[in-house]
Nucleic acid binder design. Structure first.
Lengths: 338, 338
DNA sequence: CTTGGCACTCAATGGTCACGAGTGCCAGAT
DNA sequence: ATCTGGCACTCGTGACCATTGAGTGCCAAG
């Protein structure tokens, strides 16, 4: 297979290319890294690496650049996650601590991550299906009009208007609120449909319809379309991409605007460990020249949602992974406190 | 001053330049517009327009392009707002009608506006200070921990956690909720501080501190920082800007990420009529080569917030203004219904 | 297996040149 | 008084070409 030194050469190529954004040649390599061998030897190694598909030349008579496969090997075998410096960690904590509500937490996180990695940051709101119910509130805004407010243990709040077929009977609304809460508070959202199934039956004939309508809306709120939200930031960092620009940046911006695409992207990441998807490993075409680093975060040991960054395949993987991991941890802490 | 024909020439220049993105010369003008005069005459008119500062040449031996001042004159005197086509209006209505909550309304609006104008859209959430209170809810999550939920007539929901100095006494929370709501429901948020001022006094000595804490948080929620939110979309449209790109797009993206800048931008727009700010009329430097078209929207005759688009100074003003106006109207309607 | 040498490739750089769209100005026509 | 055709001039653009140099592959010797 690949000798130790060849891997070392690959590592050097990746590091240099990430730093300079320019194809790196054999001479430059031996100068900047003490490999203990001559350029000619490196050239041979490079030829081998190219045969195996880890690096490529943009054109003859140019240096080499890593391929997606090369980055993959680098990330899997050659790189360690770079821990953040103490000042950086402190800065994160200070910055996140000031948040007043969930929107604020997510907003700050996204800005923080974008600034730290100098890339585009994506943060998913805590998913409803993985949270537990903190409270369900029903407000009568008009005789036959109810506002449904859903509060999760992660601080997320969703509201819906419900137009009922008939006005609620005396006390029926308060009744429903009490019974509903006694059943679902503290339970996972995924269990809610089960738990409320037979609720209408316990009401008077008159109210059964209205109760069902309210419950139907509640269940609707839990389906995919509305439950997954996310926030992105740092799109200005896309301008640091490369010189060839318009062609590169356009599809990325378009992909970023499609929440569906992003959600799928994050969805593909593993829950527990950090996931790195490089270039063509991303299903979406517009993101073929970007890499996505994502990880789950949560208040406990279980992930309630994911966050990550999108950047050029030519990115500082160790640093980016370090920042993503650190931020995810702190956000988890903040969430646990609220 | 400027003769009728010279204005006509300016209009033609603006129209052609907006269409082609290229400096327009005298010959091309006479070909595409039936001005009834020769290129030489147009040249004289152009020279005059240039003297007055309405148009400029990028370099000698090139055609003319409108200056900010030229666009200003065009917008003020030469252009009419272009009404949307009936299919377009129908599409707007259909698209907005499906929204389930305020987030959804704002999200759809921003996408709609971006698509319609093919530019970057900005939509401000209904401002708290201009809305009235629909309901205030207090939830005891723990003995000394209260969640404050604020609901406006426009459907906006804000929540805050309140850590109280001491647990609430029996019934005190329910009491506070009831009294609070009876005082503020239906009133404007700006009046709230007045209305709740003496509320702590009517409570037992024991609860006075906790009540004050809750009220303090309520009032905090009404101050600028947290009350103004907005959503942007269609940033991918920035890539249609021009060929010179990176330099142009970078500062714009940066400006768009600074909510403060955007809020100020919208704040400068008049409440009632549509406001167009062209190029250097925008205070923020990064937006010196963009124009902002903004207008207030609201459920009644009064504006509760603003929306608009940001695009290159070289934009289709009549069309953009038409779209912005139409969308603002429909959003107002939707809001009134909810 | 490593190394120095060598011929070769090819993108990038910069200079020259012709082209042409567009201008300003002027003298004559309306 | 205004418009128009003509004409000389400007200057950005694109084509063409030579030069340069970083980088390669290969080979023969260590």
């Amino acid at each position: 297979m690949l000798s130790e030194r060849r891997l070392e050469v690959l590592r050097a190529i990746v590091q240099d290319y990430v730093g300079t954004e320019e194809p790196v040649g054999s001479k430059a390599l031996t100068e900047r890294h003490k490999l203990g061998v001559s350029p000619a030897t490196v050239r041979n190694d490079m030829a081998a690496l190219e045969d195996e598909g880890f690096i490529a030349q943009p054109h003859t008579s140019a240096g080499r650049i890593p391929t997606d496969k090369g980055y993959r090997l680098f990330v899997d075998k050659l790189a360690d996650v770079k821990p953040l410096s103490t000042p950086e960690r402190r800065a994160i904590q200070n910055f996140l601590d000031g948040a007043v509500d969930l929107d604020d937490v997510v907003g700050r996180t996204v800005r923080l991550l974008a600034q730290l990695t100098r890339q585009v940051a994506v943060v998913q709101y805590p998913s409803l299906t993985r949270s537990t119910v903190r409270h369900v509130e029903l407000l009568a805004l008009a005789p036959a009009r109810v506002m449904l407010v859903l509060i999760t243990d992660t601080g997320r709040v969703e509201q819906r208007m419900v137009d009922c077929p008939a006005p609620f009977g005396e006390n029926a609304l308060a009744d429903l609120r009490a019974r509903l809460n006694s059943r679902v508070v503290g339970r996972r959202f995924t269990d809610v449909p089960q738990l409320v199934q037979d609720l209408p039956e316990s009401f008077d004939q008159d109210d059964r319809g209205t109760v069902s309508t309210v419950l139907a809306t509640l269940l609707e709120t839990l389906v995919e379309e509305t439950e997954e939200r996310l926030m992105i930031g740092g799109t200005a960092n896309l301008t640091r991409f490369g010189h060839d620009f318009p062609l590169t940046i356009r599809p990325v911006l378009e992909a970023l605007e499609e929440q569906v695409v992003l959600l799928k992207l994050l969805g593909e990441a593993k829950d527990s460990e950090m996931t790195v998807r490089i270039g063509h490993e991303n299903a979406h075409e517009g993101l073929n020249s970007t890499s996505v680093v994502a990880v789950g975060y949560g208040s406990g040991d279980e992930a309630v949602a994911k966050l990550g960054v999108v950047g050029p395949t030519r990115m500082d993987y160790p640093g980016t992974m370090g920042a993503v991991r650190a931020v995810a941890r702190y956000v988890g802490q903040i969430l646990a406190e609220s």
